[in-house]
Nucleic acid binder design. Sequence first.
DNA 1: CGCCTCTTGTTAAAAGTTTCACATAATTAG
DNA 2: CTAATTATGTGAAACTTTTAACAAGAGGCG
Lengths: 203, 203
Amino acid sequence: MYVQVLESFKREGTPVVSSELLARTCNVNPSQIRKDLAYFGEFGVRGVGYHVQDLISAIKRSLGVDRMWKCALVGVGNLGKALLRHREFKYRGFDIVAAFDCDPFKIGEEVIGLEVVCTRRLKETARDLGIEIGLITTPPDRAQRAANFLVEAEIKGIINFAPARITLPADVHVEYVDFFHHLYAVSFSITLDQRPKAKAIGD
Amino acid sequence: MYVQVLESFKREGTPVVSSELLARTCNVNPSQIRKDLAYFGEFGVRGVGYHVQDLISAIKRSLGVDRMWKCALVGVGNLGKALLRHREFKYRGFDIVAAFDCDPFKIGEEVIGLEVVCTRRLKETARDLGIEIGLITTPPDRAQRAANFLVEAEIKGIINFAPARITLPADVHVEYVDFFHHLYAVSFSITLDQRPKAKAIGD
DNA sequence: CGCCTCTTGTTAAAAGTTTCACATAATTAG
DNA sequence: CTAATTATGTGAAACTTTTAACAAGAGGCG
Ligand SMILES: NC(=O)c1ccc[n+]([C@@H]2O[C@H](COP(=O)([O-])OP(=O)(O)OC[C@H]3O[C@@H](n4cnc5c(N)ncnc54)[C@H](O)[C@@H]3O)[C@@H](O)[C@H]2O)c1
Ligand SMILES: NC(=O)c1ccc[n+]([C@@H]2O[C@H](COP(=O)([O-])OP(=O)(O)OC[C@H]3O[C@@H](n4cnc5c(N)ncnc54)[C@H](O)[C@@H]3O)[C@@H](O)[C@H]2O)c1
């Protein structure tokens, strides 16, 4: 979130931000920001604030996103194609260099110049290309199978877009992207507001 | 997460789960689950566990997802179209009943039987249809504008897929879906593992 | 050059969350 | 019907995160 906000400050031409300004923009407490950053180092200048570009670089270095990561996508359907077509990923350090599917009608097809490869060839292909992160966009009941292929290829990080839990060795990291979590959260917030717990006016 | 896991238990035909089993599947502590559920009510049976279907219903009722929510999508691009084509949303209680875009070439186009409407007609259309939740899939620099239109239409919840913060009145709830957060998280985990903090073998 | 202002980095206190441990209730077996 | 077994719901303890408070460092101004 800090990187996202700092990059918009950078685009606006703001050279320096205080934890106070950054906090206001992110809807958090200024101490929070100073604590978070202190965990990785001393990036600010007392009495001045943080130099935007320097802070972006420092955070990115701390998170390991100061280099290009090679990614593979498994499941070239609706969502998979949207991701493949998205140039932003490469621009921001995540290059999707291979796409896999098990559907014979999809294998061989090209999506923005990338050939869809059979999932059975995932292991060799991923290893040859030096892929480190896998994106799963198969249907939920195929997510575990896709994950297994990725683990075989010695991939160490997975983003799972399918609404299904997967089990993995301890050294493989997974992030779940589930749109329903967010929809449920919004539904809950609206419902809470509208529920007639209704403190009467004046209370 | 609990709903997601419980629904897979349901599909497998498991009628009852213990907090212990549910915890193992979700990679959390059993007490955590009992505490979380206790916040909303007493849904289990002592000595037995939780009846899967009953628990799904109870959680959904607690979160306000025991009904259909009408949604609108703003920005019919790559990602927007993928979402519109996704049947699962309606099936799970979130019906996208309107799609808006500002591009004259897109207005009038149909995506799975839904006509793309001009963003300027958002307010009237959304009100007429009784829309409650908005999905923003415009480019990041247009996200605030899209949000403003949604607020005008008296929408109370927003899911923002654009990597940009937006400011809203206090009674409008927003959830940010940012794939980069997840990619950064995975990058960080892998980097940590590989960094030569290397406790020597035997330590 | 010293004083004043500003904002960081950090220590300590407050608040929140997770886990443990066990009393309580349901079910089954004897 | 009682005892043994099981797994929930919950109060208290352990732990984590967040916030507040302030000392320390940087820069500007008279
Ligand atoms: N489309 C969306 O907007 C959207 C939104 C939220 C979540 N999702 C989730 O993302 C996933 C993909 O959705 P979608 O709409 O793209 O579905 P889709 O059916 O369009 O695409 C799935 C693709 O995965 C391929 N596939 C199936 N099994 C495979 C396997 N074992 N190995 C490799 N490829 C395999 C299929 O051939 C197909 O091309 C689903 O789990 C869905 O729930 C999608
Ligand atoms: N495509 C992906 O896989 C992906 C992944 C992650 C994040 N995102 C984010 O999702 C958003 C959309 O991505 P995309 O790839 O679909 O982009 P896109 O350019 O394909 O689509 C954007 C659409 O928004 C419309 N639009 C622009 N301004 C508008 C406005 N003021 N009102 C209404 N409509 C407007 C455009 O006409 C276009 O149709 C972006 O913010 C992107 O960063 C996309």
